[in-house]
């Protein structure tokens, strides 16, 4: 298997006033191409910190992170921005769409930043919106979309650049049960059909049960990493 993400000895310390807080304590983790993985753990266990470090949103205090074989911990702010643009797709808990842009413009925005030509980016944006089931809603602004629809736009935006990996931080936390299940099914289907690699920080049992790989983090360290077939992972 090809490794998309390789973390070695990743450590992250925060200073909270005068207190030093260790959020990650030497994490070793490899995410392979095509993985559909959940990263679970109690609040404060380091899920989001690890996700942010992998996504180049935050720098680890120590250790090495490679994306598709390239070390990212030494990159400057511009290079990290380029990495996020081209290699990483993000899905945030709070959707974080750009409120003044329509659904299709939100998706296109990433492609515009990449310098994709107008006709090609409009076609690609419509294609990914169709992939996430939002055909017909392309021109709506976020305020006129439901929470579930907004999160689908966020997924479409994350997929637009054909990234190496999509990192999702509690993607279902703001959604009702039905919408959350639809979203999980959507991401799972995208993983199946397109081979997109997903790593999701979550403590939602519904998400965990649908992932083929289940990683548990506790007190800043990986405590279990289990691969399984989906049939075994159906909800109890």
């Amino acid at each position: 298997m090809t490794a998309i993400v390789e973390c070695r000895g990743v450590t992250k310390h925060y200073r909270l006033g005068t207190i030093d807080v260790a959020a990650l304590r030497g994490v070793d983790l490899t995410i392979d191409k095509g993985d559909f993985a959940s990263l679970a753990g109690p609040s404060g266990s380091g899920k989001t910190t690890l996700l942010n470090a992998i996504g180049g949103l935050d720098r680890p205090t120590k250790g090495s992170i490679k994306i598709e074989g390239h070390e990212i911990t030494a990159l400057n702010a511009n290079a990290l921005a380029d990495l996020r643009l081209r290699k990483i797709g993000f899905v945030f808990q709070a959707y974080n769409l750009i409120p003044v842009l329509s659904a299709v413009e939100n998706v296109e925005f990433i492609l515009q930043l990449m310098g994709v030509e107008a006709a090609a980016r409009r076609a690609r944006a419509k294609e990914v919106l169709r992939d996430v089931g939002l055909e017909g809603l392309e021109n709506r602004r976020p305020a006129r979309l439901s929470g579930g629809q907004q999160q689908r736009v966020a997924v479409a935006r994350a997929l637009a650049s054909k990234p190496a990996i999509v990192l999702a931080d509690e993607p279902t936390a703001n959604l009702d049960t039905k919408t959350a299940e639809d979203l999980i099914a959507l991401m799972s289907g995208l993983n199946d059909r397109l081979g997109t690699t997903f790593l999701m920080a979550t403590h939602d049992a519904r998400v965990i049960s649908r992932t083929r790989r289940h990683i548990v983090i506790s007190d800043g360290g990986i405590t279990s990493d289990e691969r399984r077939k989906l049939a075994e992972a159906e909800p109890a």
């Binding site: 996504g55 511009n78 380029d82 643009l85 993000f90 974080n96 750009i98 930043l113």
Partner: peptide, 12 residues
């Protein structure tokens, strides 16, 4: 912060 997270360079 969001714009940067999406890959916009700080200068932009």
């Amino acid at each position: 912060g969001l714009l940067q997270a999406l890959g916009m360079r700080p200068r932009l």
